[in-house]
Design a protein around this nucleic acid. Sequence first.
DNA 1: TTTTGAGTTGTTCGA
DNA 2: GTCGAACAACTCAAA
Length: 451
Amino acid sequence: MATIHWFRRDLRLSDNPALLAAIEEAAASADPRVVPLFILDPDQWQQLGPVRGAYLVSSLNELGKSLNRNLLIRHGKPTQVLPEVIAAASATSVHISADYVPEVLAADLALEKQLTVPLIRTGSPYAVAPGRVRKEDGTPYRVYTPYYKAWLAHGWRLPAVTPSFTNWWMPLECHGRPTEPDLGNLQLPAAGEAAALAQWEKFKDTTLIDYAEDRNRPDFINGTSRLSIPLRFGEIHPRTILQDLTDKDEVYRKEICWREFYADVLHHNPDTISENLNKQYDLMPWETGKAAEQNFEAWCHGKTGYPFVDAGMRQLLAEGWMHNRVRMVVASFLIKDLHIDWRRGADWFMQWLADGDIASNQHGWQWTAGSGTDASPFYRVFNPITQGIKFDPNGDYVRKYVPELAHLPGETAHEPWKVADGYKFNYPKTIVDHSVERVRALADYEKIKKS
DNA sequence: TTTTGAGTTGTTCGA
DNA sequence: GTCGAACAACTCAAA
């Protein structure tokens, strides 16, 4: 009797408890076969967008290779595809890794009722599944640091063993790879489990030691782990990473935990994909008119006239990825300098980020907006110029992504208005005055606080 | 129930 | 140029 392992956000063979469960169940029968399946749901494909779509195609290709081309790819809705595959393989169960994105969770529950065989969830994309870490009184945490402490105390399992099982079975015509979207000049890193594990080894051996300092430097090639995309697609599991970390790697371990914390927050507050966690912020007077639209366009395409902001926005379009320090600065700029709703920015990020994860993205934006989980001071408004000078002191990052400023040496790339030939190559003038907009933002926050 | 301590990531101003 | 204080008050977590 066969079982099905339905791959979703777990595009790997190692440390994959759900896949192991599928193999173990099959192995206990007289005719052990496992169908490794990926379902390409047209609605999900649409939602994924071209950047993550292209990465997915590439990742599936790698997964297919590691399964000796036995990965069954079917196009359609899971409610249609699964009964067909179950019937063709006489499968006794469908194994998945649990997903906690609200709409996926709901779809899984509906699907489970419809299937004639059990839908078995083993593991999740997290070291500790959302909903597990709670306060003494059973309610969820809303502040990061106590969550982190409880999360550490809760602990997690050791990585699951890598299966040696090779009795894969492909009973139906495979629809093949989806057509890879054309990304123009956008370059994505190599996809797949092997590349992810190699990147983790490289990061661990070279970058991790100075991570606490270097992670803030977008001008460094080796500053961050570059594992956000593999984590998004489950090419590597956070457990695999965490088992190698010790207390001296706490800064990086905390970053892994942020991902888990935001998944937990979203799990308990599913409406916060589009709603303010703190409802008081519903009163924020966002700009919406024609001028705001023009400003939004300028922001999207890296033409605000603030070099550090523009470099970040152009890196996003060039690589499907942006350095986290710069994400905070561009988000602050949209919200507090242009006074545009955080949801507009969050949508744009989800459109372009290869690592786009709904929980981390929306709550990262809510953190910047002040509407999310953080009672920190509302007067924290990033200065786009001083942030640039501080974290890109030689201007290398700006020059790399903003060719109009490539002729400006060192720090001057951050302040083209201070040098005679600053605008020689038609770099745009600043669309707003930061010092003015900062005051306006503080006044807006003051206003909604009083109401 | 009350109290106490603490809260990712900053900026500006003035001594 | 450097450095410390001010920027408010509130919510959350835990004792």
